[in-house]
Amino acid sequence: MTVVETLLVFLVAPLSVYLLLWALTYLPGGRKRQGVQYKPGQSWDHEPVWYEPQPQGAPTHAAGEGDTQAVGSSLYGEPAALGSGDGVGPAHGGHGATALSAGAPTPATVGPLGGARGTW
């Protein structure tokens, strides 16, 4: 084994392995995180969103005719022409589950409400 071969096997080869792993780990484009990283205490100046569950009869397979498969929408197809399932109105700027529009308040008292409150 010549000196050159020794250097190649014991120095260059391990270094190249290290460099490859380093590049895969740290070079940009590998893993990009979408969305905001929320940190407690930072201000929240995004549009309010209101997510609601999918209606019971929603198709669970790929959307068929009359359904849209909106990007960022739910996994289930939704009727294209309709708004949210309970007739609250067409959803604007919705993503995720159906987002309701925050229109004029129509408070209807239904009885004593329960619940809880928390801060952090």
Partner: peptide, 19 residues
Amino acid sequence: RADEGYDTVFSYRELARLD
């Protein structure tokens, strides 16, 4: 809705979890 700007508050995966 797909053509409107996608507000990137949550990633797709997070939206799927919420949904």
